[in-house]
Computed example of a mutant assay.
Amino acid sequence: MTLKGLSSGIASYDVGGPNATMHIEEQIDTYAPVNATRHGQRQLLVFPLSKGKKWSDEFSEDATSHVGHDAEWQYAYHAISQSHVIGTEKRHVGAGTFDTFVIERNTAWTKRDPHSSSTTLHALHCDDADCTVTGYSKEVFWYAPSIGRAVLRAYSQSGDSDYIWNRSPEEILRDASSLVTELVGYGSDATCRNPHPPLLARVPSAPWYGFPLFMNNTWEFLMQRDMARE
């Protein structure tokens, strides 16, 4: 992810490699991606941050996702989240060592009404009549005030709220089912063009507890595996 510009409180990024670049915009006051269909407020950060601070947010929005390069699909997403600044920590990542706030975010979410105009996805069907998926996620941010960015993020989800919400930040960070992203370059264009190797970043290597293990041709399975909203 590369920062491309900043205007009127909105940061613009290019995400991905040179052959598969996606453009996203993000509100710098709440750390939330811009979505014109959103009802309610998504607040990943609430300033000023301090140890022990808590907040909650709830929102609904239309989500657009992709399968491959040419298949696009949509669904309705609703989330209720509780966030808590649990402490401070000096954290070492690819881009260096930073003083951070450690923020836990627990979310209960639903996904429903999947649809697509792409012929690639016409074989998908709903396993249940309401075609709704309910799940729970835990996300941990290590936010560095010195650069205004989370330098490390660990995310995992489950069909069981007790299982996922009761895990510690280190358990989430080390779990094989977690998605972990980290900052590997910060500074001038030249610095970011030659990032350091990541220390912790990885994609999940194990399935999420409480969801089907094997791929099938239902919309429910596809919604369970889409984590762009969380």
Rank of each mutant, 00 (worst) to 15 (best):
Q41Y: 00
Q41N: 10
R42V: 08
R42T: 12
L44P: 00
V46M: 12
V46I: 07
V46G: 00
F47A: 11
F47R: 13
F47Q: 11
F47H: 14
P48A: 04
P48F: 05
L49V: 10
L49Q: 06
S50R: 13
S50M: 12
K51L: 09
G52Y: 02
G52M: 06
K53C: 06
K53V: 12
K53D: 02
K54A: 09
K54H: 11
K54V: 14
K54N: 10
W55D: 08
W55E: 08
W55L: 08
E58H: 14
F59E: 06
S60K: 09
S60R: 12
E61A: 10
D62R: 13
A63F: 05
A63W: 03
T64G: 07
H66D: 02
H66Y: 14
H66G: 10
H66S: 13
V67H: 05
V67R: 10
V67C: 04
G68R: 08
G68C: 05
G68D: 08
G68T: 09
H69E: 09
D70H: 08
D70G: 06
A71Q: 02
E72L: 10
E72D: 11
E72Q: 14
E72R: 15
W73Y: 15
W73G: 08
W73V: 03
Q74K: 15
Y75E: 03
Y75R: 04
Y77E: 03
H78I: 05
H78Q: 13
H78K: 13
H78V: 14
A79I: 03
S81E: 12
Q82T: 15
Q82S: 15
S83Y: 02
S83G: 04
S83M: 13
S83T: 09
H84C: 01
H84Q: 10
V85T: 07
V85H: 07
V85F: 02
I86G: 07
I86F: 00
G87I: 08
T88E: 15
T88P: 06
T88A: 10
E89W: 01
R91M: 14
R91P: 00
H92F: 01
H92W: 00
V93I: 06
V93Y: 02
G94W: 01
G94I: 01
A95N: 05
G96M: 06
G96F: 03
G96C: 05
T97S: 14
T97M: 04
D99T: 07
T100M: 09
F101N: 05
F101K: 02
V102T: 13
V102K: 06
E104M: 09
R105C: 06
R105S: 10
N106A: 10
N106E: 11
N106D: 15
T107L: 03
W109M: 10
W109I: 01
T110M: 04
K111H: 00
R112E: 12
R112V: 02
R112C: 03
D113P: 00
D113K: 15
P114V: 04
H115C: 01
S116E: 04
S118G: 00
S118T: 01
T119K: 15
T119Y: 03
T120V: 11
T120P: 00
T120N: 09
L121D: 06
L121F: 03
H122C: 02
H122D: 12
A123L: 11
A123C: 01
H125A: 08
C126I: 00
D128A: 12
D128E: 14
D128T: 15
A129V: 11
A129N: 13
D130M: 07
D130N: 15
D130H: 05
C131P: 08
T132Y: 01
T134N: 14
G135V: 00
